[in-house]
Computed example of a mutant assay.
Amino acid sequence: MTIDELLSPDQVAVGVRASGKGVILAELARRAAQALGWDVAAIRSALERREALGSTGVGQGIALPHARLDALRRPFGCLIRLRDAVAFDAVDERPVDLVFLLLLPADAQGSHLNALACVSRRMRDPEAAAAMREARDADALYAVVTDARRTAR
């Protein structure tokens, strides 16, 4: 599975304002609900339940909130770059500014399970993360995250 199979250009945003982890999760749930035509509360609840198990702030200013949803048929992604980094209870205690939401079908198997690993590898690559932080707009950010060979700015 590749990131461009999980993420569409219209699900990427730069300069998103948020004051904390809860606001980030609420914003991601709102964006996902709008794109999927779902109830925002169900998505937010699933994200909060997963986050209660342990922070998805993986360090280096990156968070990978994710959840499994019963009615979802294919993985869904959303990437935001925050205007200002905010606390997210990350493992390294650093605030986050790059956040990739991943929603998976509840019965995910095979390539669906590889989706989180694929996203994690790309987001945690220091060169890619630097390019994502320098991307001038959402289109450039999408280009960087979906193509390991490209460093669009």
Score class of each variant (00 low, 15 high):
residue 15 G to P: 08
residue 50 R to L: 01
residue 57 G to P: 04
residue 114 N to F: 13
residue 113 L to S: 05
residue 150 R to L: 15
residue 143 A to M: 10
residue 97 D to H: 08
residue 17 R to G: 03
residue 62 I to F: 02
residue 51 E to I: 07
residue 140 A to L: 09
residue 1 M to W: 03
residue 131 A to Q: 10
residue 64 L to P: 04
residue 73 R to T: 15
residue 135 A to T: 09
residue 126 P to V: 10
residue 99 V to H: 03
residue 22 G to N: 14
residue 47 L to Q: 00
residue 141 L to S: 04
residue 113 L to P: 09
residue 73 R to C: 05
residue 6 L to K: 03
residue 140 A to H: 10
residue 70 D to M: 10
residue 26 A to Q: 12
residue 45 S to H: 10
residue 5 E to M: 12
residue 100 F to K: 03
residue 84 D to M: 01
residue 152 A to V: 14
residue 132 M to F: 01
residue 11 Q to D: 13
residue 10 D to W: 03
residue 44 R to S: 06
residue 6 L to N: 06
residue 138 A to S: 12
residue 47 L to M: 04
residue 91 V to M: 14
residue 152 A to K: 13
residue 128 A to G: 06
residue 13 A to C: 02
residue 128 A to E: 07
residue 64 L to I: 14
residue 16 V to L: 09
residue 82 L to G: 00
residue 123 M to Y: 04
residue 116 L to H: 14
residue 52 A to G: 03
residue 69 L to P: 00
residue 44 R to D: 12
residue 73 R to P: 04
residue 149 R to T: 15
residue 28 L to G: 00
residue 152 A to W: 08
residue 141 L to D: 07
residue 78 C to F: 02
residue 125 D to K: 09
residue 22 G to V: 06
residue 98 L to A: 09
residue 12 V to S: 00
residue 27 E to D: 12
residue 69 L to D: 02
residue 120 S to I: 05
residue 17 R to H: 09
residue 11 Q to P: 00
residue 44 R to F: 07
residue 119 V to E: 07
residue 144 V to F: 03
residue 45 S to Y: 00
residue 63 A to S: 12
residue 140 A to K: 12
residue 124 R to C: 15
residue 66 H to Y: 05
residue 34 Q to N: 07
residue 78 C to I: 00
residue 77 G to E: 05
residue 57 G to L: 01
residue 16 V to T: 09
residue 87 A to G: 01
residue 15 G to N: 02
residue 77 G to C: 06
residue 92 D to Q: 10
residue 117 A to V: 13
residue 32 A to V: 03
residue 4 D to I: 09
residue 52 A to D: 10
residue 54 G to Q: 03
residue 153 R to H: 15
residue 50 R to A: 01
residue 137 D to S: 04
residue 54 G to V: 05
residue 40 V to L: 08
residue 70 D to F: 10
residue 126 P to D: 11
residue 125 D to I: 09
residue 97 D to V: 03
residue 33 A to T: 07
residue 26 A to P: 01
residue 42 A to W: 01
residue 2 T to W: 04
residue 139 D to K: 12
residue 151 T to A: 15
residue 7 L to E: 06
residue 41 A to W: 03
residue 87 A to K: 08
residue 120 S to W: 09
residue 135 A to I: 12
residue 137 D to M: 08
residue 2 T to C: 00
residue 71 A to E: 14
residue 47 L to P: 01
residue 43 I to V: 15
residue 110 G to V: 07
residue 137 D to Q: 08
residue 70 D to C: 05
residue 25 L to F: 04
residue 73 R to S: 15
residue 9 P to G: 07
residue 153 R to G: 11
residue 6 L to P: 07
residue 95 P to C: 11
residue 34 Q to M: 10
residue 55 S to H: 06
residue 70 D to S: 13
residue 16 V to M: 06
residue 120 S to G: 12
residue 126 P to C: 09
residue 75 P to M: 00
residue 53 L to H: 08
residue 30 R to I: 02
residue 102 L to F: 08
residue 59 G to V: 06
residue 121 R to D: 11
residue 148 A to M: 13
residue 100 F to G: 02
residue 61 G to R: 02
residue 93 E to I: 05
residue 91 V to Q: 11
residue 140 A to D: 13
residue 72 L to G: 06
residue 27 E to P: 00
residue 50 R to V: 02
residue 113 L to I: 12
residue 138 A to Q: 06
residue 54 G to T: 04
residue 26 A to Y: 02
residue 70 D to Q: 13
residue 128 A to S: 13
residue 20 G to N: 11
residue 151 T to R: 15
residue 136 R to G: 11
residue 118 C to A: 14
